[in-house]
């Protein structure tokens, strides 16, 4: 049985058995859940289908959040890509941006999403993986498997730090999702388990200290756009790891640092909307607007 206490142990277990992390995780989880690996795969496949559908439905031109503060950003991004030959960052990357926007704003409009690991960070894994799938840059079976790697990294983070904004700030939600996605991307691009660890470490290190400061207490501003930065950090971290660049601070120590930084964050910056963007003049004005509507 795997313990999910250290990423180092997951990497060692995969390397000694010459398997991918996702392969040892699906076997282990099947044992502990007393189900067949195929049953777990099918369930995960269902979750991936929900992600794909959220990308489509969240790209609707007329999408509006419940508060009316956000909506339609994914459509705007898609139009920009179409009219500008992919835009500054290019077709693939900007489609990933649009996908993350789509899922995060679909969430804000009461759409069906997969919490990964949370609802607030639900756009990051689809932003990375659904775009790989749409651009045929990875096989669907492998993408679904890579979600087991992402999930295993998330379990280690949850066991040692937190995945809740109220406890650890946004680094715990978008930071965790980004680290999980980076590991999944490395596995999909045939990187080694060790490189998965480096990618996760780099992604977490790049979001350390990110506060949770939702305007009007809603999962919209700045959450939706932070899902996009989570995607970009996941891609760049995965690419660095695949290039052989190593995280100088080991991944398990990055997770421990995230925990201590989270505990050091004042309550005002942990989902209470008492500080950060929520407590700016415009943030306060938007809150009034929502309360009056």
């Amino acid at each position: 049985m795997l313990e999910y206490n250290l990423i180092k142990d997951l990497i060692n277990a995969a390397e000694t058995s010459h398997k991918k992390i996702s392969e040892i995780v699906i076997e282990d989880q099947a044992l502990s859940m007393e189900l067949k690996p195929e049953e777990l795969f099918n369930k995960m496949s269902g979750n991936f289908d929900v992600m794909c559908e959220a990308v489509i439905k969240g790209s609707d031109k007329d999408l509006k959040s419940m508060s009316g503060l956000t909506g339609g950003e994914a459509y705007q991004m898609q139009s920009y890509i179409a009219n500008n030959n992919g835009g500054l960052s290019g077709n693939f990357v900007n489609n990933a941006v649009a996908a993350a926007l789509a899922v995060a704003s679909y969430n804000a409009s009461m759409g069906k999403i997969v919490a990964a690991p949370t609802a607030g960070s639900c756009g990051i894994l689809p932003g990375c993986l659904v775009s790989l799938y749409n651009f045929k840059r990875a096989d669907k079976h492998d993408i679904i498997m890579s979600l087991f790697t992402a999930g295993a990294f998330g379990m280690v983070i949850a066991n040692n730090a937190s995945i809740a904004g109220a406890e650890g700030g946004c680094q715990a939600e978008c930071g965790s999702a980004s680290g999980m996605a980076a590991a999944a991307l490395v596995e999909l691009m045939n990187g080694t388990p060790e490189q998965c660890g480096h990618a996760c470490a780099i992604a977490i290190a790049n979001q350390l200290g990110l506060v949770c400061d939702p305007v009007a207490g809603l999962v919209e501003i700045p959450c939706i756009k932070r899902n996009v930065s989570g995607v970009m950090i996941a891609f760049s971290s995965a690419d660095m790891a695949l290039a052989g660049i190593k995280a100088k601070i080991p991944v398990d120590e990055c997770i421990a640092a995230m925990q201590s930084v989270g505990s050091a964050l004042p309550v005002a910056l942990r989902e209470t909307s008492g500080g950060g963007l929520a407590d700016t003049p415009t943030g306060r004005k938007l809150k009034e607007l929502v309360l009056l509507s």
Partner: peptide, 9 residues
Amino acid sequence: IIGPVMIGP
């Protein structure tokens, strides 16, 4: 962690 499937937000 990869779940649950839920209606947001």
